[in-house]
Write a protein that binds this DNA or RNA. Structure first.
Lengths: 181, 181
DNA sequence: TGCTGCATGTAAACAGTTACATGATTAG
DNA sequence: CTAATCATGTAACTGTTTACATGCAGCA
């Protein structure tokens, strides 16, 4: 079976409730799915055009002052395609986690290197967690039938980040032990 | 900055200790890095050829009986490139987790669908965890200066899987509550 | 004037997967 | 004898990213 392009489903999904421009979709992704699904500009705009050509979304030009936006709305055909995807069993997706790969290839001799990688990563995770917690507070105030699902998928990301945080702290602890020996 | 092909580093890393054939590398990946880094045959063989052309690995023909293998060994230049990579700060890598994406787009009305997705995923995770635990026992018996790092990266994978397990069980619990209301 | 954010896109390059193709060996 | 596993690869296709290109709006 050929690999299908899944970017379309994020776009369709984000258009389910309110029409949006490409830029707004990009912003929405950053605020909501970024921790488990990313899209870049260079995927979003061409995909929206493609979806429009297929009749899955419709485009309307909106101009606020001299500023122009293309607002996309999902069509019934778009909804149908989206729900067909939603019903299908999600495929297990592999992850490629360069940080762990480096860790995997280290030995005790690399401990200076290891420490710096671990510490950097810990700071990144701490920063991400702070963002997530802020987002969580914001989301708690949102009223939508989807609010529960937004919150819980965010909490899944938080839980994963916390696992890494604890794991790294454990590794840093081990590293200290080694130095004292 | 251009995106670099990172497949090479897994191959070089796996050749650090013992020379291997492409097939053996594939097997090693399945037994060790599969949960945080995957490679397919169609990446491994061409990449080994490329590395050989660059002088990062050297190829020797080995025939056990009538069976032929190409055994690759890492060269000093290969080691150098590997350690330069190891020293560089790992880039944060995005993940694309279709399962969560579907969850994110669900509403309470989709609960039948949701239940089947959640239950299927739970079974997949349970199966993966069983594999991981088996691997963990095997690894405990291995004696290598790298054993610690192998074990701990596996445990990172186990911890992540357990987070998803708990998260899904929680969602399934919530789903039951909804049905009773 | 220049910077940041809004807004949309294209071209080129590369990454990565799927499907296909081949053939030997070994265990049942 | 046949299925599974060992073993190596290629071709075609798609996905994805990076870098580039453009221009308006608002503010300091």
């Amino acid at each position: 079976m050929k690999k299908e392009n899944k970017s379309r489903f994020v776009l369709l999904g984000l258009l389910l409730q309110t029409p949006k421009s490409g830029y707004e979709i990009g912003e929405a992704i950053k605020r909501s799915t970024e921790h488990f699904w990313q899209e870049s500009d260079a995927s979003i705009y061409p995909m929206l055009k493609k979806l429009a050509k297929e009749g899955k979304v419709s485009a309307t030009l909106s101009s606020v002052g001299k500023r122009k936006k293309i607002i996309y709305s999902i069509t019934p055909q778009g909804r149908q395609e989206f729900y067909e995807w939603l019903k299908r069993a999600p495929e297990p997706d592999g992850r490629r986690y360069e940080f762990l790969l480096k860790f995997f290839f280290c030995t005790k001799e690399d401990h200076a290197l290891l420490r710096s990688h671990l510490e950097r990563r810990l700071r990144e995770i701490d920063a991400a967690l702070e963002e997530y917690k802020k987002l969580e507070e914001e989301l708690k105030a949102v009223s939508s039938p989807r609010q529960y699902f937004w919150l819980e998928s965010l909490r899944n990301g938080i839980a994963h980040a916390e696992v890494d945080q604890a794991w790294i702290e454990k590794q840093l602890g081990e590293l200290c032990q080694c130095l004292m020996q």
